[in-house]
């Protein structure tokens, strides 16, 4: 656990460097986290997906799988990998202020 300042507020991060409390999240924080993940600008499309991650997390307690994102028509797998290059499920969850996803697929 470590706290640091991000987007003008103090935010707590867990040992995996994911936000400890997803309710402390806002879009400004998301933009900073995206920068840390190598995503320069968070587009509306990024935000849309990140919001879906948050809604899913709030309703089922876990981030959605890549398969679900594809099947439910939220974002095709190809596009997801383009938007969040190098580990989309983990990156999107981190930018969404959620815990590190636990699934293997």
């Amino acid at each position: 656990m470590a706290s640091r300042e991000i987007a003008g507020v103090t935010v707590e991060f867990d040992d995996d460097n994911f936000m400890a409390d997803h309710t402390a999240w806002n879009e400004a924080i998301a933009a900073e986290l995206a920068n840390e993940e190598g995503i320069e600008t968070l587009t509306d499309r990024h935000i849309e997906i990140v919001q879906y991650f948050r809604n899913e997390f709030e309703s089922i307690g876990t981030a959605p799988s890549i398969r679900k994102l594809n099947k439910s028509g939220v974002v095709p797998t190809k596009e997801l990998y383009q938007l969040f290059p190098g580990g989309p499920a983990k990156k999107a969850a981190r930018i969404a202020g959620l815990k590190k996803p636990q699934g293997c697929v």
Binding site: R67, N70, T77, V105
Partner: peptide, 18 residues
Amino acid sequence: NLDIPEVDEFLEMISDSG
């Protein structure tokens, strides 16, 4: 139940992921 797709869908998923 574990959200693991069938083989054909899985192959597509891997291919789509690059």
